[in-house]
Computed example of a mutant assay.
Amino acid sequence: MAGLEGGGQPRGHGRVDAARWSPAVEDERALKALELFGNPTEGEVQLPSRPESAAGARRLAQVVVLRQWGLSPRTAEDVVLLVSELVGNAVRHTGARAFGLRMRRPRGRIRVEVRDPSRALPCLLPVQETDLSGRGLFLVDKLSDRWGVDLLPRGKTTWFEMRVADR
């Protein structure tokens, strides 16, 4: 196709994206998300149940793990990925208008909770290499130390925990 490079992207597309992304820009976006939604370590923050909210939740997780808790970039990467998976499930499968995100740091671990108004339980499915979807809870199961679901009178909280070194 004319105008497309090997990966099917318009010429220069990767260069444009690279020019827009930088650690400083991402850090600024993370701080804006904190200002817009609130701090999930101080209480549950509400985010609208829309696909683009996953980006806001990821940014909140990143700023909390790296700046507030001072944990490693590797830990932040795992937490951000798992937050994205839980948020994606809440957005795709619950039909809710909003969901809650909370992050805590009890001694020796971190705990991330996503609350939604559905009482439908998430399902950990077997995953094949060729599967295009359905990997969310598989990743949560593999990367976290433990995870679960707490049923509430109106909805549920899906959570995961990871062990971390105390400061």
Rank of each mutant, 00 (worst) to 15 (best):
G134D: 03
V114L: 12
L82S: 04
G148K: 01
L47T: 00
E42G: 02
L124S: 08
M103D: 02
D141A: 04
R67M: 11
R105P: 03
A55N: 03
V25P: 08
G56W: 12
E52T: 12
G100V: 06
V87I: 07
L152I: 08
G100I: 05
D116E: 15
K142E: 14
L132C: 02
R92L: 15
P126M: 10
D27H: 04
P122C: 04
T75P: 02
L60S: 04
R104K: 07
V140A: 00
P73S: 14
A98T: 05
T75A: 10
A54C: 14
L31H: 11
V65N: 09
T75V: 15
T41W: 02
I110G: 03
E42T: 02
R107N: 03
V149R: 04
V79A: 14
W69R: 08
E85W: 00
L36S: 13
V63D: 01
S49L: 11
L151H: 13
G148E: 06
V114P: 06
V91P: 00
P48S: 04
V65P: 01
G95V: 07
D145V: 03
S49I: 14
A90P: 09
H93A: 05
K32D: 12
L121P: 01
R104S: 12
R59G: 03
R105A: 08
L81D: 03
L121Q: 04
T94P: 01
L47P: 04
A54I: 15
A33D: 06
V140R: 00
V63S: 07
L143N: 06
Q46A: 10
L151Q: 15
V45I: 13
S118L: 09
V112H: 03
G88Q: 07
L143K: 06
P40E: 07
R115D: 07
L143M: 12
Q62V: 06
L36N: 09
R74F: 12
V65K: 09
W147V: 05
A61S: 04
L151N: 14
S53P: 03
S144V: 12
D131H: 14
F138T: 04
L121M: 11
V63T: 12
R92F: 15
